[in-house]
Design a protein around this nucleic acid. Structure first.
Lengths: 183, 183
DNA sequence: GAATATACGGAGTCGCCACTCCGATTGCAA
DNA sequence: TTGCAATCGGAGTGGCGACTCCGTATATTC
């Protein structure tokens, strides 16, 4: 692959993340091309279909999240690491609400491509590691499963509203996730 | 207003709720007309703009939720009433995920029409009644505010995934909402 | 049962957007 | 530097969907 082609591909992906983050699926390919500083033709050469561009954007995003979670999983205290990652994943996408909506769609049973599927399950695994470590340290209730954590994170990540209010909502959820130390 | 006109208006609104619930904003006006069993012209006579149709649909939905919450607020035990309503609002829209996305958008600061605004705040008030009653009965932690409850409900209502998993996630959140009886 | 205002249906218009095509460019190898 | 295969750009195409218009149909009134 020629080096300019690679560079353009990267710029298109970055622009796509930006545009989809603002406008969701409705963001036009032309706008993406404009922001990437390339012609429409170039966008379509790299991603023959809008759907493919969306999927590539999602995979890129999921991969980033996975790396963050993995890094977090190796150091420090288990409970804090888990809670930190939880918070990060919730608030990490403040300007990317619409992107998350796409992500949700991608998580639907039928819609997932192999590649998207793989990226999603990698993230899931990374979160699972954090979770079970925190559970072993008795920092998170033992009956919680990754699936539930996932649902909670995705749900909260979609939240609009004051940052402060969302933060307090997250506190409440984390309270719910802590082990009940007495009845 | 002629009686047939009223009937058609109602059928259009019902069809709109259905279609928007499935496909969100992307649902076409033509499809709505088809399901309502009327011509496109009729849809546009009642709701001159797609945006207006969306808003009317949202108001209708919010009003329904408000009525449910109000009814629930008057009988039975405070904590149970609150939790019941919480669960209902979360799971009451299983086929209407996309509609909720619109609703979120409507809740954005700028986008709200007076009418939508009014309907939204009526619902908020109804929930607030339930909440403070439950708090007085020491069934819900005192430091929780309506805003946070709202964020939590909206977030969870958007969740996809197994019903069972979502239910357990709701349990976790409700645990977080219960008063901490010991440190 | 007319008369009439009101409402209906759906073909047609217009603009937007995904996607195509090909002449102009440009990185790269020799 | 030169040749050429890989890229690029962006005008053009086709289709879809919001919205309009007006001839037809029907509730309502007396």
């Amino acid at each position: 692959m020629r080096s300019d082609a690679q560079a353009n591909r990267d710029r298109v992906l970055a622009a796509a993340e930006e545009v989809f983050g603002e406008s969701g699926k409705a963001g036009s390919t032309e706008e993406i091309a404009r922001r990437a500083g390339v012609g429409i033709g170039t966008v379509f050469r790299h991603f023959p279909t809008k759907q493919l561009l969306i999927e590539a954007t999602i995979v890129r995003h999921l991969t980033l999240l996975t790396n963050t979670a993995r890094a977090r999983g190796e150091d420090g205290e288990a409970g804090a690491a888990f809670r930190m990652t939880f918070r990060e994943m919730v608030s990490g996408a403040p300007a990317k609400l619409a992107l998350l909506a796409l992500l949700e769609e991608a998580a639907a049973p039928a819609a997932a491509t192999d590649e998207v599927e793989a990226a999603a399950s990698a993230l899931r695994d990374a979160v699972e590691v954090l979770l079970s470590r925190a559970q072993k340290a008795d920092e998170v209730r033992a009956d919680a499963t990754v699936d539930e954590i996932y649902v909670l994170i995705r749900a909260l990540a979609n939240s609009r509203g004051d940052r402060a209010v969302v933060d307090r909502a997250v506190d409440i959820v984390l309270d719910g996730l802590s082990p009940r130390r007495c009845v």
